[in-house]
Design a binder for these strands. Structure first.
Lengths: 150, 150
DNA sequence: TCTCTAAACAAGAATAATTCCGATTCAGGA
DNA sequence: TCCTGAATCGGAATTATTCTTGTTTAGAGA
């Protein structure tokens, strides 16, 4: 079940409005990168987006795709999923725990919660596959980053 | 509050036992990489671990650190946090949602849950900082990967 | 204890994702 | 239409990670 044309158009319009409000130019490239994501449901990566948009905008560069994705994320128009930083982070704490991630400095704090260890998984998820683990990720600003910002 | 010597030793012993059981050699390098993580609470990345271990084992190579971390993770002795794959994944769905991630193929499925949108955050987290968003990550094997494995 | 061998290691080259840089183009306001 | 700063292009640079080749070594067995 792909997204409806109407939904895509709604997203395109919101994007155009946000860009205008933010003083960002509505370039052909920017719109096509967003259109690609607005119609996708499979969380594509930058390279995939680049390859698809290139069919419509042959001269577009990878750099533009990367820059545009970063800009759109800043504007709150898209999400970048899963990645904390470009580096993997390791941890020898094998007790079941959850993470608080500071979006400013990238620091990760573990925390524990019996309630969160045993989350109610919606029945609909079963259609995706078998769940093997569940973890809560909190994002925010840590106390030391909050201090330095003031 | 650093980890107690006793806890570190407990982890070291478990590591030694696991290696022996798995037919893995207890090399100096392997033990020092694990010791570094066993005593750390800050989720260091591979480069940081390399720099620290190097002070004790000057000739160790980055490759060994990377290989050892992968081996330790396979053995269930450490966690690799946050990273799904090496590529960022993008998403124009800005409604609050959660993720089911297939650990075999890396595919990501969105799902929705009012209950999960409003998780009870433990009071202790407040000491880390201000929480701005909460998201549940489920990991497992998706139906299509489960099929091809049979 | 000594020997042997597969497993593990070191060093640096290779790869992959992403970002930077200098030159060029263009969106949108005047 | 003209102008200017923002955005783009193309390729080089950077960063994290993995691979390759030759060397070392843990630990099994004599």
């Amino acid at each position: 079940m792909a997204l409806s044309k109407a939904e895509i158009e709604r997203r395109m319009e919101r994007m155009a409005r946000t860009c205008r409000d933010g003083g960002l130019k509505l370039t052909h490239q920017r719109m096509e990168v967003f259109r690609e994501l607005a119609g996708a449901e499979d969380h594509p990566d930058a390279e995939t987006i680049y390859q698809h948009v290139r069919r419509r905008v042959p001269a577009i560069s990878r750099d533009t795709v990367y820059r545009t994705l970063a800009t759109l994320e800043e504007q709150g128009l898209i999400h970048k999923a899963e990645i904390l930083s470009s580096r993997g982070r390791y941890d020898a704490n094998m007790d079941h725990h959850h993470h608080f991630i500071c979006t400013a400095c990238g620091r990760v704090h573990d925390f524990y919660s019996r309630t969160l260890d045993d989350l109610p998984i919606p029945r609909s998820v079963a259609s995706f596959g078998r769940v093997e683990s569940a973890q809560v990720q909190l994002r925010g600003i840590c106390t030391s980053c909050a201090k330095t910002k003031e």
